[in-house]
């Protein structure tokens, strides 16, 4: 059994597995939402998860945001000054961060920092029978373990993306205004004239909320669905990061094409 038949068979299997998992993930989301009451009623459960996925991701978000902004400042000025419009640096930095880089890069960082941690935690709880033990104690693991982690991620992600964008703008300002010497007034005023609150800022926030839902769902699903062994957990973590990255980039394309169609 080799050659094209085997290849076709494997391909078919991969596709059907993928579709099956997709359906299961959708059912899982419904189950998750149905059992979310507790994580909202007992808020400290969710607050604890905001700490783990949000507060602990703060450092990497702040530092990366600053660096991305500084790179944008350098590269952007380099390009803009050829056309004699170095003053528009603020516009370039702010628009690229608020519309695209903020939500996308923060989402990718969030997936690899917090998403993988959530998958690892839930996966290990499954592998060491902690979830079974909880279920046996008549405590629903989806309500007690999965839902708070999901909501913690959904709440943290937009805040992290906003912090990333803000730090990026400050990074661009640092390079552009402080080091290169772009006029400070032009930097801010051109930025404010070009960045629209509803069109750019709100759309960026919507993107980050969508990414937060996607990454959190992938993270809890992969953890809950993993093979309960050490190897299974490590594979689940890899899958979380890979699928989150793909989901973020694909969703970004879809959202961008909807949001900015009329404008650009």
């Amino acid at each position: 059994m080799s050659g094209p038949v085997a290849v076709a068979r494997r391909l078919g299997r991969i596709v059907s597995d993928g579709v099956w998992r997709f359906g299961f993930a959708a059912r899982f989301l419904v189950m998750l939402l149905a059992h979310s009451g507790q994580s909202l009623m007992r808020l400290h459960l969710t607050v604890r998860e905001i700490y783990f996925s949000g507060v602990l991701s703060l450092l990497i978000i702040v530092v990366s945001g600053l660096f991305v902004g500084m790179v944008l400042g350098l590269q952007g000025y380099e390009t803009l000054q050829r056309f004699g419009s170095g003053d528009a640096l603020g516009v370039l930095v702010a628009l690229s961060l608020v519309r695209e880089l903020g939500p996308v890069v923060a989402g990718l960082l969030f997936a690899s920092r917090a998403g993988s941690a959530v998958t690892a935690e839930i996966g290990l709880m499954k592998a060491t029978e902690q979830l079974d033990a909880m279920d046996m104690m008549a405590v629903n693991p989806i309500a007690r373990v999965v839902a708070p982690r999901f909501w913690g991620g959904v709440i943290s992600m937009p805040l992290l993306a906003a912090i990333f964008s803000a730090m990026g703008v400050l990074g661009g300002w640092l390079i552009g205004v402080v080091f290169i010497g772009v006029d400070e007034g032009a930097f801010w005023s051109q930025m404010q004239a070009a960045v629209d609150f509803r069109e750019d800022v709100v759309n960026g926030v919507i993107k980050s909320v969508v990414f937060g839902v996607a990454v959190s769902l992938i993270a809890v699903f992969e953890g809950y669905d993993c093979t309960p062994t050490a190897e299974g957990v490590s594979r689940a973590i890899t899958r979380t990061i890979v699928s989150s990255a793909l989901a973020i980039l694909a969703l970004d394309f879809v959202l961008t094409s909807f949001m900015f169609r009329g404008v650009s």
């Binding site: 060491t128 033990a133 279920d135 046996m136 104690m137 008549a138």
Partner: peptide, 26 residues
């Protein structure tokens, strides 16, 4: 199940809680 208890093979203690919190959990 509230009237049942089950001891799992390796205990299945909640690793993020202390001994006290584990017993207090149910």
């Amino acid at each position: 199940r509230r009237r049942m208890g089950m001891l799992f093979q390796f205990g299945a203690l909640f690793t993020d809680l202390t001994v006290f919190e584990n017993v207090a959990f149910p």
